[in-house]
Nucleic acid binder design. Sequence first.
RNA 1: GGACCCGUGGUGUAGCGGCCCAACAUGCCAGCCUGUCACGCUGGAGAUCGCCGGUUCGAAUCCGGUCGGGUCCGCCA
Length: 648
Amino acid sequence: MIDPSRVNSPPDSGGYDTRAMSDPTSPVAGLATPYRTHTCGALRASDAGSPARLAGWVHRRRDHGQLIFIDLRDRHGLTQVVIDATDSPEAHEIASRARSEFVVTVAGEVARRLPGTENPRLPTGEIELRATEVTVLNEAKTPPFYINDPDAPIDETLRLKYRYLDIRREAMQRRLELRSRLVQAIREVHHASGFVEVETPNLIKSTPEGARDFIVPSRLQPGEVYALPQSPQQLKQLLMVAGVDRYFQIARCFRDEDLRGDRQPEFTQLDLEMSFVDEATVMDFVERMAIEVSRAVVPERTLLATPFQRFTYHEAMERFGSDKPDVRFAMELVDLAPEIRGTAADGAPASGFRVFDEALAGGGRVKAITVPGLGDAPRSRIDELTEAAKRFGARGLAHLSVEASGSVKGPIVKFLGEDLAERLAARAGAKPGDLVLIVADSSAVTNDVLGRLRAELGTQLGLADPDVLAYAWVHRFPMYQWDVENGRWDATHNPFSGVLPEDEVLLTTTSGDLAQPTPDDPAGRARAMQYDIVLNGWELGGGSVRIWRHDLLERSFALQGYSRERMQNMFGAMLEAFEYGAPPHGGIALGIDRWAALLAYQVNIREVMAFPKTQSGSDLMLDAPSEPDPAQLAELGLQFVGVPNRTG
RNA sequence: GGACCCGUGGUGUAGCGGCCCAACAUGCCAGCCUGUCACGCUGGAGAUCGCCGGUUCGAAUCCGGUCGGGUCCGCCA
């Protein structure tokens, strides 16, 4: 039986040596409490002979009758506790009733294990705690999944419903610790670099642009709403006007959009902004910060290239078919047009394969990637790839196989002729045994489809070294893209992104009237001082040097079709602030969840979040969202309309 | 908004028209066991196969719907 007086009051720690845990140089300093003198990962052979008290969860119990072993677990490790009936019949009796996940505290003497029974797989494997006292602090129901088996697959629903048990598992503990170290390292670098950490509010004003806002009804002002920030974008720019000079924040952000492996409705950004900077200043700082943080958090990982590779948007799209290229492997896109164009005397495309010729004649492209070792891929594999290409938006996918003998085969060889087929394969850089995949379409479709195929094949074929961290920059994005539906120019990223100084003259329309935009306007060629940081094929973050001059800001907004009233309503505070002396400034925001996931070898940011939501935005543990109390709605002056009755 | 995959004792899986009132492993419960570390041995309990409807002589199995989870497209300045 459990003695209730012992359960509810801490056991006496008097007489036990707590010096190890009060040693300020020890990573477990200060963790000694009345319930424990050491953590379950602390004891070593040098502690043999000392008394100790441990507390934790019963990881596993091995009952040999008169002798019981308990592996006791806490966040810090696992220690074997031995309870020998001849040492203490009382302790043995209690231990025999202990079950998995019971919370216990045990006291006794640290002893070297008997020769031959050491466990080299445990850091504490040379010793064991010979317990003379066992106290059950709390019993536990049988858990709904295996907390003590790192390899057991667990249904995602169960993990999320019982997240507090999921997090007890070692893998989750390690990931949360890694994330904690990541944030700590980020803070240290910023503080050492003269940044001020400023918190900005979460109840702000909705801006009807970009992602869908989460809104919060106001009780004090019925009929009006706050919005949760999609990012602290405007606030940090106002901090620059306020003279804060160098700001950063680990900021929670909210976007009411559909979820993905790398997207949750609430997520965390490293948000920063700097005054009196140009593009290079910000990129150089962020790059140095990212390197220092990576080395501090995951010193064992290889950084692919320092300084980071920098691609213009145009270059990234041409070479990788993506604005977030995974540069851990090559398989770059190759333009086949020069070989095809040379096939006729007048330079007109005449490859003999109509799809290629028509694409080129229509101003499109014929490009290829070479897949190493897939030259002998069966028909079914080619069909899969063709299927994927169509899903990505291509009309088809041509291929050439280079056989071991060097001869080039494939259904299109009969149109191209062997000579041209061989020259195309050679231009694509194909070696015997390789497969050349060719897309002919508009420039945008060709690059996009090949880029997606490249990314998918890179994963499938294991071309990317998982231990490598490949950071890269992509910059000089187009300022605007043509919005066909609304017949206007849209900011490709942030509407406050600045234009490259040499492209300032392009911020106009053909007619000169900013209110009359057309798809052929010079504005379409203007490039932004916008930069994205990419890590292993994921967009880690993006930022820009802002438009800090009032006149340019108004011009840019006018091009995007904003009326003066709309501008005033959406960005009134900023526009006014910019009339009071805004310094040149720029910044960036990095996804902390994505960064932590990539550093932890994960493909889903749920794995580095304590309490994430499902793909349908539910919190299975708290059962959120849920129906509001009618009184709450009444207080806010709200009622649901057009919501189908939910039953069951 | 759309496509695809999954849902069977506590957990992970098998079974995919009758041989199944459902099998295996593990977990759980009881007993035995003094050197285990995924301890071992013996015995036992535990599922109307997510839910609703249909087809059929007969449904875990086929069909439709629905709910939940996942992956992806759209969406994500």
